[in-house]
């Protein structure tokens, strides 16, 4: 079981890191979401894995707590999940704002001198900016 969890965390991390290295905001948001999963599961796993040992006390027996898994990482992860939602939301709003202001959702700064070598094929953002197209429903249906 440990191997499965560890590899899953690894896969999520790798996917997340790859996506945050992309050039568009949406991919980065997806990457951050995947990294949050990875981090949350990793933190959770620091309490070690246990099956059928939820930290819900049943018999109120004193002294022997071997039947319960570690509750502390769970509590920490619970708030982390909610906070990572908040983070994702703020991130989404930033990129949306940047997209609406600038006309494209590239995350890197413009200008040929600031772009790294080997990335010459970046499309010209100015063109997008001039004519924003939102692919949503038309104002009125054909009627």
């Amino acid at each position: 079981m440990e191997i499965l969890v560890a590899t899953a965390v690894g896969a999520l991390t790798a996917g997340g890191v790859y996506l945050i290295l992309r050039l568009r905001a949406f991919a980065v948001i997806l990457g951050m979401a995947m990294l949050s999963y990875a981090v949350n599961v990793f933190l959770f796993s620091t309490g070690r894995l246990a099956i059928n040992a939820a930290p819900i006390l049943t018999g109120y027996e004193a002294g022997d707590y071997s039947g319960y898994t570690d509750p502390l990482p769970q509590a920490l992860v619970l708030t982390a999940i909610v906070i990572s939602f908040g983070m994702t939301a703020v991130l989404v709003m930033f990129s949306l704002g940047a997209y609406l202001e600038a006309g494209d959702d590239r995350i890197d700064m413009d200008g040929p001198d600031t772009l790294p070598d080997g990335e010459a094929e970046v499309t010209d953002g100015a063109e997008d900016a001039a004519h924003l197209t939102i692919e949503i429903e038309p104002k009125e249906s054909g009627a």
Binding site: A6, V9, G10, A14, V17, L21
Partner: peptide, 27 residues
């Protein structure tokens, strides 16, 4: 599609290294 194949390959290498490291740590 904006990044070159070489760049994507490099990013993938970084990502896989990070994934392997985190997986090992978690294990």
């Amino acid at each position: 599609v904006e990044s070159s194949g070489g760049r994507r390959f490099g990013d993938a290498a970084i990502a896989i290294a990070a994934g392997v490291a985190v997986a090992g740590l978690a294990y």
